[in-house]
Simulated assay, not measured.
Amino acid sequence: MGSIYDFAAETIDGRPAPLSDYRGKVVLIVNTASKCGFTKQYAGLEALYRKYGDRGLVVLGFPCNQFGAQEPGDEEEIRSFCSLTYDVDFPMMRKIDVNGPKAHPLYAFLKTQKKGVLGTEGIKWNFTKFLVDREGRVVDRFAPTVEPKALEGAIEALL
């Protein structure tokens, strides 16, 4: 079956980010965008990170430009936007694809572990959320319309 610990990413600053660094943490993985109707969820994601971070929650943001070209900026523009607009302190990664032949291997894995509506694997839009337990197993998938605050019960159950 594997776990998220089998994968690596790059931080928005270009540094290696093996997901094994998050071993023993509860991880919320989200594909993000700066010019989306759901962009305001950055505030809720940051609130979760601040509320539960000391208990072991990590939020990982993966910018993606595959949905309506709503993340057109480069990494520096994305980082600046997140910091200045939403005071984001949770780890942000380099922009990736989440669908298609160039999908990041982590997302290829996540989609097989928790399918979407009617068993579909593809990510439908920005701010799809995957919740991962302390053993690196994907335990739930949440639609973009699910507000971060609504995840508190599921997060607390894993902490």
Rank of each mutant, 00 (worst) to 15 (best):
D74I: 00
D140H: 09
S83W: 10
T85C: 13
S34V: 08
K149F: 02
L158S: 02
S34D: 07
Y49T: 03
Q70V: 01
G119A: 08
Q70A: 02
P101L: 04
L60Y: 09
D89Q: 15
T128P: 03
G116Y: 09
D13F: 10
R50S: 14
C64M: 10
F90Y: 15
Y22T: 10
A69C: 10
C82S: 09
Y5W: 10
E135Y: 07
T85L: 14
S83L: 10
N65E: 07
A17K: 12
G119T: 07
I78F: 06
P105Q: 09
F81Q: 05
A43V: 04
T11G: 09
A47M: 03
K129F: 00
V88M: 04
Q66S: 10
A17Q: 14
E77M: 13
T120L: 15
N65W: 08
E156H: 00
V98N: 03
D21F: 08
A108C: 05
A103P: 08
V139Y: 10
N99P: 09
A143G: 02
V59D: 02
R50T: 12
G53N: 08
R134H: 05
E76L: 12
L158Q: 05
G24M: 07
G119N: 09
G153M: 03
G37H: 07
P144A: 11
W125E: 01
M93P: 13
K51Y: 08
R94A: 15
F81N: 02
V98R: 07
A157K: 08
K35P: 03
G24C: 09
V58N: 01
E152Y: 06
P91V: 07
R79V: 10
I12C: 06
Q113H: 06
I29A: 11
A157M: 00
C36K: 05
F130M: 01
E76W: 11
S80M: 14
D133P: 07
T11L: 04
R23V: 13
S3D: 13
T145A: 14
V98T: 02
L57D: 02
I78A: 05
E46Q: 15
F130D: 00
E75R: 01
F7M: 06
G2A: 15
R15D: 15
C36V: 03
F130H: 02
D6W: 02
I155R: 00
Q113A: 14
G44P: 06
D87G: 14
E76H: 13
R94K: 15
I155M: 01
